[in-house]
């Protein structure tokens, strides 16, 4: 069981009070009339599926019924932070210390790829290509 901190109730609650509602920080294209089919399709259907740090929207459905965001490691299931809607995460895969701590690697384009092998130095070296 997760024990999740609700940023609105300001306390930890059991997982059964919550529901996961998919990737967070999706932006609707500002000008839908002048958006290509590809951009619109990306917005509607395509989601990140990283192996590592992921930002998700959750809802405290049995409780205050508010949506909020969770930063979670999809390999270890560790919840790294929760924060209210409209705020930006402080823990992201862009931060080298977070990547190192969480055993996550980033390939070209910032994609997080193969999972946790923090003990392997060769795999975790920061290389830019």
């Amino acid at each position: 069981m997760f024990y999740i901190f609700c940023p609105y109730c300001k306390e930890h609650r059991e997982e059964e009070e919550f529901h996961a509602r998919g990737q967070a920080h999706l932006m609707r294209p500002a000008d839908p009339d002048n958006t290509t089919d590809e951009e619109w399709g990306d917005y509607l259907f395509f989601r990140n599926n990283p192996r590592g740090i992921h930002h998700e929207m959750w809802v405290h459905s049995v409780g205050c019924r508010k949506f909020f965001n969770i930063t979670r490691n999809t390999v270890t299931y560790e919840i790294l932070e929760t924060y209210p809607m409209g705020e930006q995460p402080t823990i992201t895969a862009d931060i080298p210390s977070v990547r190192h701590e969480q055993g996550v690697q980033a390939a070209d384009g910032g994609w997080q790829t193969v999972g946790a092998r923090p003990e392997s130095k060769a795999l975790n070296e920061e290389t830019s290509s």
Binding site: C9, E14, E17, V62
Partner: peptide, 10 residues
């Protein structure tokens, strides 16, 4: 006072 799970209800 809290809103929470009670048995299988809310």
């Amino acid at each position: 006072g809290v809103t929470t799970v009670f048995a299988k209800a809310t």
